[in-house]
């Protein structure tokens, strides 16, 4: 009996916590498709707000997707070989490098953005281009790619696979392509999902780095929260959810598959 009461209380508590997280999200989804949020859902369901958002902010959505994919490309090309090098080399230098590239996670985005502005603010063309935001996103997401790939290296005994391929005559580059990368695929995939998700949602850095011509989705969101009616802001948020939730589901699925093994 006492156990049942404890169970019920804990369940109730957990449900309240879940409600705290889920209710606002649900409200925002509802508001995004309601004719008039103030009058409630009985005022009718509509896609006009979504259409209005697409009309006003399509550019920011495309920009975010492009930057996320660009960031992914750079973190793959730069991060995967680096993760391999750091893992096989090991030792103090590797730990130091890992520590340094992980710093952007610990340091607030504001500080990094400020540093970038102070260093490159004078280079007008770069400052005004998408590449400026891309650079910030690359620095911010790189540790997630590198660590995710390094973690998989640790779990598959990549050193002896490497030596195995070497014993069969494969040169370093060939081993990397034939053996290392294919076997790191789960880690690369997990890292990629993380990088894209983070880049799509990045605000702290991007807000400081953006110009009126280089606005991303979160920047647009902040803009709409400040200046648009609630329904538009909600519809915009809804679009963001639609973009981000598949990534989250995929990440969770990979995580579960990984831990089930």
């Amino acid at each position: 009996m006492r156990d049942r009461i404890i169970f019920a209380l804990q369940l109730l508590f957990t449900l309240i916590v879940a409600a705290f997280l889920a209710v606002p999200a649900a409200l925002s989804i509802a508001a995004g498709v309601t004719v008039n949020y103030f009058r409630g859902i009985q005022s009718g369901v509509t896609l006009q707000w979504v259409a209005q958002v697409l009309d006003l902010y399509a550019g920011t959505i495309m920009a975010s997707i492009a930057i996320a994919l660009g960031t992914l490309l750079v973190t793959l090309v730069v991060g995967v070989p680096a993760a391999y090098a750091l893992y096989v080399r090991g030792g103090r230098l590797a730990r130091l490098v890992e520590e340094i590239i992980t710093l952007p996670v610990a340091i607030p985005g504001l500080a990094l953005a400020l540093g970038l502005l102070l260093s490159y603010g004078g280079f007008g063309n770069f400052r005004r281009s998408w590449l400026f935001i891309l650079a910030g996103h690359v620095i911010f997401t790189m540790p997630f790619m590198v660590r995710s790939v390094m973690a998989i290296f640790a779990s598959i005994d990549v050193k002896s696979l490497d030596e195995g391929a070497a014993s069969l005559g494969a040169a370093p580059w060939r081993r990397f392509v034939d053996v290392i990368v294919p076997n790191a695929a789960p880690g690369i995939l997990a890292g990629s999902l993380m990088v894209v998700t983070l880049s799509l949602g990045e605000f702290n850095l991007t807000w400081m780095l953006h110009t009126p011509l280089t606005k991303t989705l979160p920047v647009g969101l902040a803009d709409s929260y400040a200046s648009m009616r609630l329904e538009v802001a909600s519809a915009y948020t809804l679009i963001f959810f639609v973009m981000i939730i598949p990534l989250l589901v995929a990440m969770q699925w990979i995580g579960e598959r990984g831990s089930a093994k």
Binding site: L161, E163, G164, N183
Partner: peptide, 13 residues
Amino acid sequence: VGMVFQSYALFPN
């Protein structure tokens, strides 16, 4: 050289 490793180092891919 042909080498047989203790862990075999067979390529899972």
